[in-house]
C-alpha cells in the first residue's frame, strides 16, 4: 500500500524545535564555513601554495571590430616542457574568448564551471547570452572569494569578446580577483615583454585595426618565444568579432637562429 521507502518527513517548513523559546531561536551557532575549511584530512589540511603544471603568457589585443587572444600551446611541469600541444585559448560562447595562464588544472576547473554556466544560459532558451564583461565580473567574484578562503585558484586569465552591440571588451582577472580592462592585456612573462611592445605602437587617437593587431600578435609571440624559456614556437589565436568567434591555428613562430653563431661567452 504505502511505499515507505520514499516517506517524506512529517513536518516541513514549520518552526524548528525550540525556535520560539530558545534565545535567538536556538540559532546561535557560528556561520557555517566551507567544508574544506572545517573538515581536516587525516594529517590536517593544506591548500595549494603554488602552481604545478603551468601555462605561461597569454596576450590579448583589442582592435576596432573585436579582440584577438593568443597563447602558446605549452603546459610546463616546472621547467620541463611537459605538454606541448595543449590549447590555452578557449571559445566560451559566440561572444567570449578565454585565455588561461597559470596552473592549468585550475584553468580546467574554472573552465568547467564556465561551461556549465553556458549550458544554463542555453537552457533558459531566451536568446540572452553572457557577455565578456559579465564573465570577467563573475570571475572576479569567484577568484576573490577563493582568495578570502585562503584557497586561491592559481590562474591569470584573459577574457575577451564583444557585447550585444558588437563593442569589443578585453580584460584580465588574476588569482586574487584583481581585474582591469584595456586595449592590450597580457599575463605571465608577456606582461613584461609583450605589453610594452604593443603599447608603444598604439595610435593615440584610434583603436588598432585588425591588420595591426594580427601583426602585433605575430611579432609579440615571436619575442615571447625568444625571451621566455617556458614557451614554444607554436601558438593558437582566438578571434572574436560580431560575426565570428573561433580559435585559429596552431601557428608557428618564424624562428631564425643564425645570430646564435655570434653569441659566445656563456
Amino acid at each position: 500500500m504505502m511505499n515507505n521507502s520514499c516517506a517524506q518527513p512529517m513536518w516541513l517548513n514549520g518552526p524548528s524545535p525550540g525556535q520560539f523559546y530558545n534565545f535567538m531561536g536556538g540559532n546561535n551557532a557560528p556561520a557555517q564555513l566551507p567544508r574544506e575549511l572545517t573538515t581536516a584530512g587525516p594529517y590536517g589540511t593544506k591548500h595549494s601554495t603554488a602552481a604545478i603544471t603551468t601555462g605561461s603568457s597569454v596576450l590579448g589585443i583589442r582592435f576596432d571590430g573585436g579582440v584577438l587572444v593568443a597563447a602558446d600551446t605549452l603546459v610546463s611541469y616546472g621547467s620541463l616542457a611537459r605538454y606541448q600541444n595543449i590549447e590555452r585559448v578557449f571559445q566560451i560562447n559566440n561572444k567570449i574568448l578565454l585565455g588561461g595562464g597559470g596552473d592549468f588544472a585550475d584553468i580546467q576547473s574554472i573552465k568547467r564551471s564556465i561551461d556549465q554556466k553556458m549550458i544554463e544560459d542555453q537552457c533558459c532558451n531566451d536568446g540572452v547570452v553572457m557577455k565578456p564583461a559579465e564573465l570577467s565580473s563573475w570571475l572576479t567574484r569567484v577568484l576573490y572569494n577563493r582568495r578570502c578562503r585562503m584557497n586561491p585558484l592559481y590562474i591569470d586569465v584573459v577574457v575577451g569578446g564583444v557585447d550585444e552591440a558588437g563593442k569589443p571588451f578585453l580584460g584580465n582577472v588574476d588569482l586574487r580577483g584583481r581585474a582591469y580592462d584595456d586595449y592590450v592585456v597580457a599575463t605571465g612573462f608577456g606582461r613584461h615583454l609583450a605589453l610594452p611592445l604593443v603599447r608603444e605602437r598604439k595610435p593615440k587617437d584610434r583603436e588598432f585595426t585588425f591588420e595591426e593587431a594580427t601583426s602585433l600578435i605575430r611579432e609579440s609571440m615571436k619575442v615571447l618565444y625568444y625571451r621566455d624559456t617556458r614557451s614554444l614556437p607554436q601558438y593558437t589565436v582566438g578571434i572574436c568579432t560580431a560575426n565570428d568567434c573561433s580559435i585559429k591555428g596552431p601557428f608557428k613562430v618564424e624562428e631564425n637562429w643564425t645570430f646564435a653563431e655570434g653569441v659566445s661567452g656563456y
Binding site: 533558459c124 531566451d126 540572452v128 553572457m130 557577455k131 564583461a133 559579465e134 570577467s136 565580473s137 563573475w138 567574484r141
Partner: peptide, 15 residues
C-alpha cells in the same frame, strides 16, 4: 548586478 556587473535580463527574472 553584484555577480555580473550588469542588469538582470527581464525574461529570465520573470521566469
Amino acid at each position: 548586478k553584484h555577480s555580473y556587473g550588469s542588469t538582470y535580463p527581464v525574461s529570465r527574472l520573470i521566469t
